[in-house]
Amino acid sequence: MEMTKYRDNGQFCSGHVACAGCAEALSMRVILNAVGEDTVGVVAPSCTAVILGGHPMSSAKIPVLHGTLESAAASASGVKRALKAQGRDDTTVLCLAGDGGTYDIGLQALSSAAERNEDILYVCFDNEGYMNTGGQKSSSTPHMATTGSTPLGKATHKKNLIEILAAHRIPYIATASPSHLSDLAAKVEKAKSIRGTKVIIVLIPCLPGWGVADNAAVKTARLAVEAGAFPLLEIEDGVHYSLTVAEKTRPIDAYLAEQKRYRRLSDEDRAALQSEVDDAWSRLLARAGKDLNA
């Protein structure tokens, strides 16, 4: 693996109140620095809102508008249009939300913005649950993971937001991981250079929510990528799929073992999850391969 490298111009400040070892704060550091000074942030209620805010202090050097949970993408669309009216069309509007604000409560606003192809960069910090409010399940919570509201493990599957977004044929969709920070920075920079709606989903292993050790968020995210449980990819115009990490190099076991939310799993459960990952991976390969043959 290549060594990590990205630019840090001090756009994200020390003293924020993210948990010690939080991968979301780490990812935010990379994103805020990659997107640059000429940016306005729009934030949905989420861990992000807490990490960036805390009046009268802010940990971001850019101005940030704190909106409502259901309207992040709509607020961002409005901010972008207002900036355009002021002749500041080059200013990036960065919308930051969690999976609750993206997969569930903000999905309508996001879908509408995507359908209108609003010129916003939308980042979803996907920690697979409402982790900020005590750890309830969201529609992003994966199959069999325990949360406060799924104590025996979630019975249904994680919503496939990537496919939903692809169906909107927006110019750019990507997934990223705090274990691959140079890749995250490169994807933000690429998205910033594209006009229209761009969405980046970043996997955030939540330390208290997933039951991961304080020093293990990056390791857990890396295992997710290596196991193919969270593939790193890019989709252009909703149809051109490409895999950033083209190989699945390990079984899912080590990824599951790192997290307490999976500790109730039986061997059969683990095998079932493995075959779900394998199936999803082959579907993904087929999509990426189809593009190669086009």
């Binding site: 400040c13 020390s14 003293g15 010690a20 805010g53 009046h55 202090m57 802010s58 050097k61």
Partner: peptide
């Protein structure tokens, strides 16, 4: 005090908060 660069309602950066006190 670390002043926030943007002349908005929130006028300080989080650098005024010493999170080192959390540490063991």
């Amino acid at each position: 005090m670390n002043k926030h660069p943007s002349p908005l309602w929130t006028h300080l950066t989080s650098e005024n908060r010493m999170t080192g006190t959390w540490r063991s």
